[in-house]
């Protein structure tokens, strides 16, 4: 408390310098707190490696390797030539895991983003405005939620046909409901708080209040939920592929690879091992990062 009394003697510094100083320090601050969590750093490292490998897939192993069949190498165990071995059609599993990751991860990330965006906006609107708008959105949501997720996605994919865009649409529609409920409950809580009232008393518009006072405070919960969902969608999408509703063969895709590996499970478990490991590792790393981010973004935990 002693510091305030000296305020009048403080030298004035120009605002511009301070802004740049602030931006830097805030990012640094979050990074500093993020670094403290070993799990989060591990997750980030793992995800970076996975992404790097997947992005460089064409350099490491050209796409043709992932689809070229070579029956003489059918079910070949891992060797120097094919480090993950080969599958039932003699295709290189390493190349298939790499290229499959592109589809799997991009679908997971994009579907999470779109469902989060759609759900958050609807949830915020429902929670903030209440009354009729809330009722309409919630009842519409009930309709979506009354159909089991897996059935819903399957129905959409079957109706629209299995391709990249339709998979995104199906997964978004299946998952946005979570966000609506989550964000709505957060907004209901937060809009009762005095600083929201204070912002309104200061003349802030509803859109501004939602954007600067409510959403940032709900961000921790949203981020954790999002990272959990990325993992979930990776698994989900694998499930769809496993059922034959994902990307059409011969495109490499993790879930599809699991489905194909099932036939050779007893004799050649390596067919299953590598794509499964890829799924587990990416899901895990995203979760770890999510936990770390939640702690890092919360200024209360700053120490």
């Amino acid at each position: 408390m002693g510091r305030e009394e000296t305020s009048l003697r403080m030298e004035k510094t120009t605002g511009i310098e301070k802004i740049t100083f602030k931006r830097q320090s805030q990012a640094k601050e979050i990074w500093r707190r993020f670094k403290k969590s070993k799990g989060a750093v591990f997750g980030l490292g793992m995800l970076t490696i996975i992404l790097a490998v997947i992005l460089l897939a064409d350099v490491i192993a050209p796409y043709s390797l992932a689809t070229r069949q070579n029956m003489s190498l059918k079910l070949a165990p891992p060797s120097w030539g094919h480090i993950f071995g080969c599958d039932g059609y003699g295709r290189d599993i390493f190349a298939r895991v790499l290229h499959g990751g592109r589809t799997s991860l991009s679908i997971a990330v994009i579907a999470t983003m779109t469902s989060c965006l759609l759900g958050s906006i609807l949830g915020a609107v429902a929670g903030y405005f209440g009354k009729v708008i809330d009722s309409v959105i919630c009842r519409a949501l009930d309709i979506f939620m009354s159909v089991p997720d897996i059935l819903f996605t399957m129905a959409v994919v079957v109706a629209l046909g299995a391709n990249f865009i339709n998979l995104l649409v199906a997964l978004t529609l299946a998952y946005f409901t979570n966000y609506v409920r989550l964000v709505r409950s957060q907004v209901l809580n937060l809009s009762e708080l005095e600083y929201v009232e204070a912002a309104r008393a200061g003349g802030a518009s509803s859109a501004r209040i939602i954007a600067t006072h409510i959403i940032p405070n709900a961000m921790g919960v949203i981020i954790v939920n999002t990272t959990l969902n990325v993992a979930k969608i990776i698994l989900y999408e694998s499930t769809l592929s496993f059922l034959g509703l994902g990307m059409p063969p011969p495109a490499p895709e993790w879930g599809l690879m699991l489905a194909e590996a099932r036939a050779f499970l007893r004799t050649s478990p390596h067919l299953l091992l590598f794509p499964a490991a890829a799924i587990v590792m990416s899901a895990c790393s995203v979760n770890l990062i999510g936990d770390g981010l939640r702690d890092a973004l919360d200024p209360h935990l700053k120490s």
Binding site: E194, Y195, A198, A201, G202, G203, T212, P216, H300
Partner: peptide, 27 residues
Amino acid sequence: MRVIRGNQIAMVFQDPMTSLNPVMTVG
């Protein structure tokens, strides 16, 4: 009303603990 709120009529609330947004700097 929004133009008047905060600009011509401002309000200070009772509890300073809860009337500031916890995730924004005071500046």
